[in-house]
Structure formats: C-alpha cells, structure tokens
Design a binder for these strands. Sequence first.
DNA 1: TTTCTGACA
DNA 2: TGTCAGAA
Length: 147
Amino acid sequence: MTKENSNEPLIDSNKLIFGIGQVQQITGVSGRQLRYWEEQNYIAPIEQQKGTQRQYSFHTLFLIFHIQRYLTQGFTLQAAVEKAKEFEKQMPVLRTFIKAQLQGVDVSNERSVIDFGFKNDERKQRVYGIVEGNKTYFKVEDLKESK
DNA sequence: TTTCTGACA
DNA sequence: TGTCAGAA
C-alpha cells in the first residue's frame, strides 16, 4: 500500500540533538543562562544522568531561540518564557490550518498570490492572500457558476 | 577541549 | 549573568 500521507517531513526533528555548545552558537544564549533557565524549570534538556553533558532536542532549541528573541525585545525572562511557550501552543494550530487550506503560491516580484482555497463548502468564493512588497491583504474572488 | 557544579568582585 | 576553580 502506498503511504496516505506522502508529504511527511524530510527529516525527523526528534533525531536532531544539540549539545550545549551548539545551542550557544545557534541561539547566542550562554551556557550559564541555559543552566539557570533549566534550574528555573523554564527549559529541560533530554533526560540524562547527573553530571553528564546536556543534550537538547530540536523542540527545546526552538523554545530557547524564541525565549532569547523575547528577551532581546525587552521582556523579562519570565515573560519571555510565557510568550515563547504560548507561541509554541499556537504553532500546531497554525500548521494544521495552513496545511489544510494552502492550495498553492504564485510567486512574483511585484505581487505574489497565496491560494487559500474555497471560502467554504459552497465553493462559490475563493480566498487569496496577496503579498506586495511589505503589504499584505486578502482578496475574495466570486467564482462563476459552473452550471 | 568542552562541559559540569558550585561559588562569588 | 559572567567568570573562575577543580574535576570528568
């Protein structure tokens, strides 16, 4: 049988493991901070024994990256963690929606068009996301009756 | 060489 | 949070 879901991720993110040194290079967060954040239970390395070197999952790396971003924006560590975790909760929802709705993207320098498919099951309107430089907006197109 | 824990101008 | 020490 052929796989139903033919568009699975190319790589298994669960197999992407990073040492604390790599995390420092990638995120710019110091080892001292990483250990402190861990101590505060904001982040957690992959389960391991006492004294051994820490290993971080891709998911945790992503979380660390976002916490750092919010810190840079001026949020306190606690607030940054909350915002980062909140964002992580939203991601699956966004992913599900985009995966289901995205029909195609027509890229162009002046005006790119994102096809979000039909507005609803009535299939009488098509929704498009328009990108013109830095400006973005939606456009709903009424479809001709296919009598 | 890198990382770990604990301590502190 | 940075940094230093002493140990893996």
